[in-house]
């Protein structure tokens, strides 16, 4: 109704101009917010970063020294998280999109994944503490933290992969089956390669979620200041280090430096994968 009244008062062409402006402004504001946050992190953090900061151990609980063990910890737990969640997530997505019909089990899996993705990360942390750290006796370790992060990354990878597999033109699979290919040959040689860009993007989203997470590892990974070697070593990934430096008032400068390193790490991962995915997609689609 309000719409009708608006049309009566404002001529359509002017209304169009106003709406164009509003949409343009929304876009610009979003961009500005992003630039502001990243810009501020870099403004505060980049001056702290140097080779020593990147490649040495922290001293005095992190008040001085570098963050080398934290960088290693972050990469380590994220690697484990992806190693575990990617095969399960992609496998489940293939099952949902290609094998399962529409039945109760499928709806249940989908509902489960959606619910999983909306659970607050601190609850994952608590679960990780009870299950991995205590019940499975993995202790505060890279393994406990990585597995907890895997649980969190799983629904993200599943959802993105399923959408990507579902969007693959059904005619590809028909063409393959009509040539006498089996279902598995069709899935492995046609469907997965065609869905690979989307699947990769999903894995990267899951990875980004895992590498940036502090709450889920708060109770599972320990907080050791040394470089973890074994899977059962405790560790302190970047977000956790950042959290401790800031909340315990150890060094705000080093907290900003840690934040900047984390942002740069995520940027490197996403930009590299996007470039590779783009190249693959162009080659596949001949453009």
């Amino acid at each position: 109704m309000g719409d009708c009244r608006l049309h009566r008062i404002i001529p359509p062409k002017i209304a169009q101009k106003i709406m164009d402006l509003i949409f343009w402004a929304s876009g610009i504001i979003t961009l500005l917010i992003l630039l502001m946050v990243i810009g501020y992190v870099f403004y505060k953090g980049l001056p702290v970063i140097n080779l020593e900061f990147l490649f040495t151990d922290p001293m005095d609980s992190g008040k001085a020294g570098g963050i080398f063990p934290m960088i290693v910890s972050s990469l380590y737990v994220t690697f484990i998280a992806v190693l575990v969640s990617a095969p399960i997530g992609v496998g489940a997505a293939l099952y949902l999109a290609e094998y399962a019909g529409e039945n109760r089990t499928v709806r249940l899996i989908r509902f489960g994944a959606e619910t999983l993705s909306s659970i607050p990360s601190i609850i994952f942390g608590l679960f990780g503490l009870a299950f991995f750290v205590i019940y499975l006796r993995m202790g505060w370790s890279v393994l406990s933290g990585g597995l907890t992060l895997a649980l969190m990354a799983l629904p993200t990878i599943l959802a993105a992969s399923e959408v990507s597999i579902e969007s693959i033109n059904k005619s590809y699979a028909q063409g393959s089956l009509a040539l006498g290919a089996t279902k598995w040959q069709t899935v492995s040689k046609v469907v997965i390669p065609a869905a690979l860009p989307g699947i990769t993007t999903g894995i990267i989203l899951g990875m980004a979620r895992a590498i940036a997470e502090a709450a889920a590892i708060l109770y599972t990974v320990g907080a050791a200041l040394i470089t973890p070697i074994s899977l059962l070593d405790p560790a302190r990934p970047l977000p956790l280090h950042l959290y401790i430096l800031a909340t315990e008032g150890i060094s705000l400068d080093n907290a900003w430096g840690t934040a900047a390193v984390l942002v740069i790490l995520i940027l490197i991962i996403t930009v590299t994968t996007n470039t590779l995915v783009d190249r693959y997609r162009k080659q596949m689609m001949g453009r």
């Binding site: 005619s171 590809y172 028909q174 063409g175 393959s176 009509a178 390669p193 065609a194 596949m284």
Partner: peptide, 13 residues
């Protein structure tokens, strides 16, 4: 028994 479909459906290969 091979089949050619209504819309060309080459694989993205």
């Amino acid at each position: 028994v091979g089949m050619v479909f209504q819309k060309p459906n080459p694989f993205p290969k």
